[in-house]
Amino acid sequence: MNIFRLTGDLSHLAAIIILLLKIWKSRSCAGISGKSQILFAMVFTTRYLDLLTAYISLYNTSMKIIYIGCSYATVYLIYAKFKATYDGNHDTFRVEFLVVPVGGLSFLVNHDFSPLEILWTFSIYLEAVAILPQLFMISKTGEAETITTHYLFFLGLYRALYLINWVWRFYFEGFFDMIAIVAGVVQTILYCDFFYLYVTKVLKGKKLSLPA
């Protein structure tokens, strides 16, 4: 464990908690893509099946349980409890165009052709593109609530910190996982446009609005 990975995990946890609290306190999921949240729930489910087979540490196990619990709670709030506030007209990204290619790729490019490893690979590839429905929804509505931009900032920051963690681990431990690194680079690149808007607008107190 190194500082980049720890702050990355805490940034990820912060994003998940910010979103859950935003929906719970405002009793509304306006502007939130339910499709992205379903994809994230799929990412955690397929990645953390090793909860049943391997114990790594209390930190590892508790974080996985928190991530899975919060992501399913968020999906529940969006599609059940606050369903009336779900903006389905703008959450129209065709997720099958993500899940099918990612599913196929995880069978073709993986470290080991075993069920757990293929599911892990699927979760890595899926996480790289899971935010697309959310970014697409913001481009369609042309704006995002400030709290939503903070959620996206921490979510994008977490994988960027993981990239630094992988540089660190390669240099000090000789460890590297090409699949996680390539997917992590793609994932972080997808946030670049948002990061630019976040820094130039939101951090200056303006609302994030895209030229519609």
């Binding site: 990975r5 090793d50 590892n60 460890f175 090409m178």
Partner: peptide, 10 residues
């Protein structure tokens, strides 16, 4: 290609 070390990252 790394051997499938135990996945200790989240």
């Amino acid at each position: 290609d790394t051997e499938t070390t135990e996945k200790d990252e989240l």
